[in-house]
Design a protein around this nucleic acid. Sequence first.
DNA 1: AAATTATCGCACCGATCGCTGCGTTAGGCT
DNA 2: AGCCTAACGCAGCGATCGGTGCGATAATTT
Lengths: 185, 185
Amino acid sequence: MSAAPAQSRPGGRSARVRAAVHRAVEELAAADAAEPLTIPVIAARAGVHPTTVYRRWGSVAQLLADVATSRFSGDVVVPDTGTLAGDLERWMGDVATDLADPDVLALMRATIGSGPEGGCACAVDRHDQLRAMIERERARGGAAPDVERAVDMLLGPLYYRAVFSTQPASPQWARGLVTALLKDM
Amino acid sequence: MSAAPAQSRPGGRSARVRAAVHRAVEELAAADAAEPLTIPVIAARAGVHPTTVYRRWGSVAQLLADVATSRFSGDVVVPDTGTLAGDLERWMGDVATDLADPDVLALMRATIGSGPEGGCACAVDRHDQLRAMIERERARGGAAPDVERAVDMLLGPLYYRAVFSTQPASPQWARGLVTALLKDM
DNA sequence: AAATTATCGCACCGATCGCTGCGTTAGGCT
DNA sequence: AGCCTAACGCAGCGATCGGTGCGATAATTT
């Protein structure tokens, strides 16, 4: 007998159920809060029994955090154009394009409202990506602004417009933030 | 008989009930989502019958929007120090101090999650205040940055840190954003 | 291929939610 | 002071939610 044989089973049907539930959450969050966004509703849309959702995730807040973490990680890759300005401009354009989708925004809003950890789950990955680009530029020998300052001047305005303002955050405008950041340093 | 005698009655008990419900929403939102934040719970905490809340507000989303509009309007006054830099620094310090309260943050998060209009309800007043200060400086004959740019560089980082980051937004740091904005223009 | 067991579906229960008549209280006006 | 009616409290009604046993299914290992 072994010590710990196989504690988890992440293949096949489990993965399929997980994908269906994630998709249902995104679709329901996109339907501007007309749907109550509760576990039976999510399960019904996913074609899955509510019991499964209760057992795997426990609460809507945890489910939303899981969905947000999956959604806001990995779909934007860190570019490598050779210069920090080029990297940042391309990356900001991609992030802005991703945030232009109303469905993505709705998911983000719902996640923020679900708990204190929700907001961080939407942004930590972007934070890490930004730090990676800046540290790479420094390793290359170039001058780069502080990560903290870059977050304030790039992610700050972008996410503010997405959540708090009615003004559109176009990729062109987002790229303009990069030049404003790199100008005075 | 008059045309429209008295369609509303905002005094006395109605005002008292409104204040109690608003207070209950703020307190429940501050109790980090452990409470379900539903109408019977809000009414019970306010010492008010649930029927009243259903009739006056209809849904939790509308109630939250009402509370947020009341809370994020008027508690910060537009200063008048004579210079734009002085006005902005004092104002940003006040706004940052207000946002440092975890209860205020919890209310903001819940409002954002309640509907697409929630985010705007938390920021429109600050937007107007910022525009007022900038237009006053222009009427004074001085040079002032674009309102749009000021929103991006001041409100953007401040609200981003409040919602998406774990980094504290101290009043000193918020005042520093003003000098960074006014430096390059 | 057979065994093992993590995972899912089904039926069901108590609790709570959202909402609606109806009577009562108390602001606002003459 | 007295009337009028907006606003509130009470009782109760479907409907739905969150959660629990128990058997069935299928992913993984031997």
